[in-house]
Simulated scan of single mutants.
Amino acid sequence: MTALRAVIFDVDGTLVDSERDGHRVAFNAAFAEAGLPDRWEVQEYGELLKIAGGAQRLAYWFEQHGTATGQARELAQQLHRSKTRIMRQMATDGHIRARPGARELIELLQSRGIRLHVATTGTRAWVEPLLRHAFGDPFDTVTTGTEVPVLKPSPAVYLDVLIQTGLSADQAVAVEDSANGVRAAVAAGLRCVAAQNAYTRADDLSAAVLVADGLDDPELVTWFGDHLV
């Protein structure tokens, strides 16, 4: 087996607990700011996560509640801009926390000379302050949906990281939390470790080389320990 040289992390739901207490809160604040009555509760938002992309999620929601397709998409784009601004402020203010075990895993990998990268389809406007506040500056490459706007399960964002870094797929491992993320990583030729969360425990993560119950799961920590050079 080729020696592990790099780990490529997803962000939402993987490195940080951002879906329930980040994005959902920001969406609800954007609804309120626009004077709309819509609100997404915790369980409801979990169901909506099956739709990849925040703007797409909004458009689907509005269409399902009787808004014509064209108007739904226009309203979704408007609301998504507001939501991104709110999410950026939340990230800057430190309201979105690292998942248990995230910092410890990053420190372990750094101590063993493993390069760290990020492949997310989130918007750079909020991804950068979030990562900086939660982790400092451990990542060599941060590729976001601003540069690669094709959503997972497309492998595009992972392929972009591989091109930027000059890594071959067998030299790196992806860390994801969801079915779409695992599919994206595997389609890029990467091994993938899945660290599921409350929203993704029912996802089909079977294509991952390991499915763990979070980044602090001893099985996940042991797996990386066994594969570090």
Rank of each mutant, 00 (worst) to 15 (best):
T2E: 07
R5Q: 15
A6V: 09
A6M: 02
V7I: 00
F9N: 05
V11F: 09
D12N: 13
L15P: 04
L15M: 09
L15N: 06
R20L: 13
G22E: 01
G22K: 03
H23G: 08
R24C: 10
A26E: 12
F27V: 09
A30Q: 01
E33W: 07
A34V: 06
D38T: 08
V42W: 15
V42N: 10
Q43K: 10
L49F: 13
A52Y: 05
G54D: 04
A55N: 06
Q56G: 11
R57H: 11
L58Y: 13
Y60E: 04
F62M: 00
Q64A: 09
G66R: 08
T67L: 14
T69H: 07
T69D: 11
G70H: 03
Q71A: 15
R73G: 00
R73S: 08
R73Q: 15
E74G: 14
H80M: 07
M87K: 13
M90P: 06
A91P: 01
T92Q: 12
D93W: 02
G94E: 06
R99S: 01
L108H: 03
S111V: 03
T120N: 02
T121N: 02
R124T: 10
V127Y: 06
E128C: 03
P129Y: 03
L130C: 07
R132M: 03
A134M: 00
G136D: 02
P138Y: 03
F139V: 01
D140C: 03
T141F: 08
T143N: 05
T146W: 02
E147L: 04
E147V: 14
V148H: 02
P149N: 09
P149H: 10
L151G: 06
K152G: 09
K152D: 04
K152Q: 12
A156P: 01
A156N: 04
V161C: 07
L162F: 12
L162V: 11
I163Y: 15
I163L: 15
L167Q: 07
L167C: 12
A169R: 00
D170K: 05
Q171G: 05
A172T: 01
V175A: 02
V175Q: 01
D177C: 00
S178N: 02
G181P: 12
V182I: 07
V182G: 00
R183W: 06
V186H: 10
A188L: 08
G189K: 05
N197P: 03
T200G: 01
A202R: 13
D204S: 07
A208T: 00
A208V: 04
V209L: 10
D213F: 11
G214F: 15
D217G: 03
V221G: 02
T222I: 13
T222P: 02
L228E: 05
